[in-house]
Computed example of a mutant assay.
Amino acid sequence: MKQLVTALVLSLIATSATAQETLTQRAEFVKAVTGHILEIRLLRVQLEVLDSGTITGKAFGRGVTGTWKWKDGFFCRSMTWGDRELAYNCQQVATDGTSLIFTSDKGSGRSAKFALRPATP
Results as ranks from 00 to 15, higher is better:
15 T>K: 11
55 I>V: 13
31 K>R: 10
75 F>L: 13
76 C>L: 06
35 G>W: 01
17 A>R: 14
69 K>I: 08
98 T>D: 11
95 T>R: 01
109 G>T: 13
16 S>Q: 14
87 A>M: 08
17 A>G: 14
11 S>L: 14
38 L>D: 04
65 T>V: 12
108 S>K: 12
114 F>M: 09
59 A>K: 05
81 W>M: 07
21 E>C: 08
116 L>K: 04
85 E>I: 04
38 L>Q: 05
65 T>S: 12
90 C>I: 15
120 T>R: 08
17 A>V: 06
99 S>G: 06
88 Y>N: 15
91 Q>N: 07
7 A>Q: 14
79 M>R: 10
82 G>L: 08
14 A>Y: 12
69 K>V: 13
106 K>P: 07
105 D>N: 12
18 T>F: 02
79 M>H: 04
75 F>M: 08
94 A>K: 03
98 T>Q: 10
88 Y>R: 13
32 A>Q: 03
45 V>I: 14
75 F>E: 01
32 A>M: 05
12 L>W: 12
94 A>T: 10
99 S>V: 01
24 T>K: 06
43 L>W: 01
116 L>F: 00
80 T>V: 14
16 S>C: 08
12 L>C: 02
81 W>S: 03
23 L>M: 10
15 T>N: 07
32 A>E: 00
84 R>V: 03
2 K>W: 06
119 A>R: 13
62 R>K: 11
74 F>Y: 06
25 Q>Y: 08
